[in-house]
């Protein structure tokens, strides 16, 4: 029963399988993205309060929601690393940290741009932006720890532990920041988009964009994990053969 699980843990198997998945994922992402972006930019009706800034939502919300998935992913990979000592899990965790930091940074930037017309300022200590910022710091901490430890094995375990501790902390931070923010100042009207009932002409393109960005996340994670596999397995015969067979381009 566990056989598939450990086969999945073999970097070579993953490399070969992901090579087959990638073109399909790429086609799926391109299709979803083009439909989603055209729909969001051309067909979504203007919001009666926000006007055309509602189109920012179709980038900001998918990116932000996927950046929230990054810490749980790293924590699960960390548990697998610590319990089953699976190398592939650590490679995924290592690659997920910088990608997650990218997603968080883009979510912060787009959130700030979306907030500007509403708040009249580029940065507000809004509960969501603040907890996103702290999540960004946590990710930077994991990346810094990874680069500080020289031994790959020790770095894997240390980062796994830090990711688990961070993942436990993320909800606590989120809760405390919300509590701090709601009592400090009146609740921002940033959540307007969720309060008002959304018709299908609003949420269908949003769902499409969320799936598109999810595909993008998976693709970029697979791409950098494949590089990491080649890097770490460069002495094994299958990688040597693969490099010899690769067409020069």
């Amino acid at each position: 029963m566990w056989q598939w699980f450990f086969r999945l843990g073999s970097p070579k198997w993953f490399y070969e399988m992901s090579g087959k998945w990638l073109p399909w994922l790429f086609v799926l992402m391109t299709a979803l993205l083009s439909v989603g972006i055209v729909w969001a930019l051309l067909y979504v009706p203007q919001d009666y309060q926000q006007g055309d800034t509602i189109r920012i939502m179709y980038v900001h919300v998918p990116v932000a929601s996927i950046s929230l998935a990054c810490f749980p992913l790293m924590a699960v990979a960390g548990i697998i690393t610590l319990v089953w000592k699976m190398k592939l899990a650590d490679m995924v965790a290592k690659c997920a940290a910088p990608i997650g930091a990218w997603f968080t940074a883009v979510a912060l930037a787009t959130g700030a741009i979306w907030g500007q017309p509403i708040w009249g300022t580029w940065w507000a200590w809004d509960a969501r932006l603040t907890s996103m910022l702290i999540q960004f710091f946590l990710l930077i901490g994991v990346i810094a720890l990874r680069s500080a430890i020289e031994s790959t094995d020790a770095a894997a375990k240390a980062c796994a532990l830090l990711s688990i501790v961070g993942a436990i902390n993320v909800p606590i931070i989120k809760y405390s920041v919300e509590w701090w923010n709601t009592l400090h100042q009146p609740a921002s009207n940033f959540s307007m988009a969720e309060d008002s009932p959304m018709g299908p002409e609003i949420w269908v393109p949003l769902v499409i964009m969320i799936f598109a960005v999810y595909c993008f996340f998976v693709i970029s994670l697979i791409l950098s994990t494949r590089n990491e596999i080649l890097e770490r397995e460069r002495r094994s015969q299958w990688v040597v053969d693969l490099i010899a067979d690769e067409r020069t381009n």
């Binding site: 993205l33 972006i37 930019l41 203007q46 006007g51 055309d52 800034t53 189109r55 920012i56 980038v59 900001h60 990116v63 990608i99 990218w102 883009v106 930037a109 787009t110 741009i113 979306w114 500007q116 017309p117 993008f216 693709i219 970029s220 791409l223």
Partner: peptide, 23 residues
């Protein structure tokens, strides 16, 4: 884009750069 030329297009531009770099 109504009053929000800069806001909307900078977000989509940023998104394009983000996609491009990460792929």
């Amino acid at each position: 884009m109504g009053k929000y030329t800069f806001h909307v297009w900078s977000v989509y531009g940023l998104f394009a750069v983000f996609l491009f770099v990460n792929l």
